[in-house]
Amino acid sequence: MAGFNARTGLEELEEYAVEHVAADIIVNANESNYNLPRPIEQAVAAKLAGFPFNRYPPMQAETLRGLIAEDLALDADNIRIGNGSSELLQMACYAFGGNGRKIAFPYPSFSMYGVYTKLADSIAAPYPLTLTGYVDPDKVIEFCRAEQPALLIVCNPNNPTGNYNPLEVMEKILANVSCPVVMDEAYMEFAKGSGVDPQDLRPLNKLKLVAGSTLALTGKYSNFMCLRTFSKAYGLAGLRVGYAVGSAGIMRVLGKTLLPYHVNAWSLAVAEEVYRQKDLYKEQLETIIEQRDLMREQLEQMGLKIWPSATNFLTCCPQGELTARLAAACEQQYGSQGEKTQQMLAGMYLYRKLLEKKILVRDYTSHPVLQGCLRITVGLPLENVEIISRLQRLCGEEAI
């Protein structure tokens, strides 16, 4: 930052950048590889004619908020809309963080938690997950009592491990911490969780929509917000739309941090159509879940360790004898890689060989906790066949 009087702390941050890599199969960012269902695509195309691009978008995204509120049998005051759930997460850090305040978040998890904490001029307080990637509610509660964070973030299902924690685990945390809580549920549509509040008097069809999610607890606890996104299950990553659900009080605080007209009109118009016809995604979601479970079995048969995923991705790494074989193959083909462990080398070998075949996955091979890991988004069925076929060859005779 030489030559500029930037705010203290920014020098510790790197600009967020993702290298553009040409690939035929893109499964590195947990996007949906499906486009819009045809009826929604047609409805969206019809909106283009005469669309008021010259006008600012609705200030409070009233239509989309109303649709979500009606669906969940809540009031519009319980909903806020953002540029993806990431903006709402960042604004929650601004709203409740600040100089000298701690923000607690899981590790390993979404890398932007630490970035948003720093941008909010707050103190990072990462808490560990279990060795298998789950939330231990008793340890989180104990952590919060000791550290006294101003905000607690929980990622469920967790990214990048994919673990889903049951509703009773989340409720135990909500009932026993004193600070506001953000429940980041970007991948909840893939989890097929169950469980509702037995005292919730909403109609059965409404309860089915929130089963297994902390959305089921919005009438019971006022100290949290649940974040959802259109980027994953609904394939709108390119338009950046998400929403927060919580008590009217916590939504008012969040709303103070949101800029005027912050979600563009076209994104809102498309998201409204998607939400109205979201039942059309049922077949896509079922296919992704079926493909995920099939891929898990196939990857395990190759000798890879798979983290337990309830999302649209699988995180895996070589283990045992396979690690040594792949590490040796890596150095034989690419030369010495310096001070890298065998686990790192094995994962690096798979990553590079996949990329040579124009298959782009997420590289976690040098991550302190996830050494040697690759995260693979579930793609289209034929893409998944190609990924598995390539990995089978790499983990078999080609690595000998």
Rank of each mutant, 00 (worst) to 15 (best):
P160S: 14
G320K: 07
C226W: 05
T130N: 12
I388N: 02
D184P: 06
A265Y: 07
N30E: 12
E31F: 07
V270I: 14
V182N: 05
S222N: 08
E171W: 13
P166K: 13
R276G: 01
K353S: 14
G97M: 09
L350G: 03
A211E: 08
L151K: 02
G66Q: 04
Y281V: 09
V135Q: 08
S336H: 07
T63M: 11
R101S: 12
R38H: 10
Y187Q: 08
I306M: 15
T315G: 08
L370F: 01
C317S: 10
T218H: 05
Y127N: 04
K118F: 01
G3W: 04
E185P: 05
A191M: 04
A45V: 04
V369S: 11
P160V: 10
E272T: 13
G249I: 05
D136Y: 09
L167H: 02
Y107P: 00
K278D: 04
P368G: 05
D75W: 08
N312T: 06
M1L: 11
M91F: 09
L174D: 07
A17H: 06
L64W: 00
E397I: 13
N35T: 10
Y351N: 12
K358Q: 14
A329F: 01
L382W: 09
V154K: 09
V169K: 10
A310F: 08
Y221T: 02
A104K: 03
G3A: 08
V270K: 06
Q298M: 14
I306Y: 05
F143R: 07
V140Q: 12
Y234Q: 02
L350I: 00
L167T: 03
I359C: 13
D77C: 13
Q343F: 03
G50T: 09
R375P: 00
Y34A: 14
R292C: 14
E397K: 13
P58D: 12
C93H: 12
Q90I: 00
V115P: 00
A146M: 08
E297N: 13
Y107W: 12
H367G: 03
R80L: 12
L345N: 02
F190P: 01
L380C: 11
Y113N: 14
N176C: 10
L207A: 05
E286H: 05
F224S: 07
L285E: 06
C373D: 03
G238W: 01
G195D: 03
K208G: 02
P52L: 11
L74Y: 08
L67F: 06
D24G: 15
Y34M: 05
L13R: 10
F53M: 13
Q392Y: 09
I388P: 02
Y261V: 01
L207N: 09
I153F: 14
S366Q: 10
Y16P: 04
I40D: 05
E41G: 12
N28V: 05
P106C: 04
S309P: 00
A328E: 10
M1R: 14
Q60V: 04
G212H: 12
N159H: 12
N28A: 15
F224E: 07
L259H: 13
P381A: 15
A92K: 00
Y16E: 14
S336G: 03
N158D: 08
Y34E: 02
R202C: 04
N83A: 13
V378Q: 01
N158I: 09
G372D: 01
F96R: 00
L10P: 00
N264K: 06
E297A: 15
S309G: 12
S213E: 04
A233D: 00
S247R: 08
R296K: 15
S366C: 04
G235V: 01
I173W: 09
M348P: 00
L131K: 03
